[in-house]
Amino acid sequence: AITFRFEGQEKAKKFYEKLMRQNLEATIHIHGDEVHVTVH
C-alpha cells in the first residue's frame, strides 16, 4: 500500500475520485487539515 498526504480535503477528494475511475482500491483518512489517501 502507498499513502499520499494532502493538505486540505479538496485535493484529496479529487485524487480519490481519480483512483475510483481507474478501479483502484483506496481508503481515505482525515486527520484535521491533513488527509491521507492509501492506495492498496
Rank of each mutant, 00 (worst) to 15 (best):
K13A: 08
A12V: 02
V39Y: 12
G8A: 12
M20S: 04
G32L: 06
H36D: 03
A1R: 13
V37G: 00
V35A: 04
L19Q: 02
M20L: 14
L24Y: 12
T3N: 03
Q22V: 06
V35K: 00
T27V: 07
N23L: 07
R21P: 01
K13M: 15
H36V: 12
A26I: 11
K14D: 09
V35I: 11
F6G: 02
I28R: 00
E25D: 12
I30M: 08
F6K: 01
D33R: 10
H31T: 08
K11C: 15
V35F: 11
V35T: 05
H36G: 02
F6W: 02
L19D: 00
A12P: 00
R5P: 02
K18I: 11
E25Y: 15
H40E: 05
V37L: 04
E17G: 04
T27D: 07
D33E: 10
I28T: 01
M20N: 03
F6S: 01
Q22G: 05
V37I: 10
F15P: 00
M20Y: 04
V39D: 01
E10I: 07
I2M: 10
I28L: 10
K14C: 07
Q22W: 15
E34A: 07
A12E: 00
Q9A: 13
I28W: 08
D33F: 11
T3A: 04
E7P: 09
I2D: 02
N23W: 08
Q9D: 07
G32D: 06
H40F: 14
F4E: 01
G8Y: 08
M20T: 06
V35N: 01
V39F: 14
L19K: 02
N23G: 15
N23Y: 07
Y16K: 03
E7F: 14
F15R: 01
V37H: 00
L19P: 00
V39M: 09
H31I: 13
N23P: 03
H29K: 08
T27M: 05
V39G: 02
V37D: 00
F4K: 02
K13S: 06
T3P: 02
M20W: 05
R5E: 03
I28H: 01
Q9W: 15
L19N: 00
F4D: 01
I2N: 03
E10F: 07
R21L: 11
H29I: 12
A26Y: 11
A1P: 11
Q22E: 08
G8R: 08
K14F: 09
Y16F: 11
H31F: 13
K13G: 05
E25C: 13
L19I: 08
D33Y: 08
N23H: 10
V39T: 04
G8F: 10
H40G: 07
T38M: 10
F4A: 02
K13H: 10
F15V: 02
L24P: 04
K18H: 12
K18L: 14
K13Y: 14
I30D: 05
F15I: 02
K13N: 09
Q9S: 10
K14E: 13
I30P: 04
R21W: 06
K11H: 10
A12L: 03
F4T: 02
F15M: 03
H31W: 11
F6A: 01
A26G: 03
F4Y: 14
T38H: 13
R5Q: 05
F4M: 03
L24V: 13
H36S: 08
A12Y: 03
A1E: 10
A12T: 01
I2L: 09
F15D: 00
K11M: 13
E7A: 13
F6H: 01
D33I: 08
H29L: 09
F4G: 02
F6N: 01
G8Q: 12
K11E: 15
Y16N: 00
D33A: 10
E17T: 06
F4P: 00
I2F: 11
I28N: 00
H31P: 00
I30G: 03
A1T: 14
A26S: 03
G8H: 13
F15Y: 04
G32Q: 06
T38N: 04
H29T: 14
G8N: 15
T38L: 10
T38I: 14
K11A: 15
G8W: 06
K14T: 08
Q9H: 13
R5N: 03
K18Q: 11
F4Q: 02
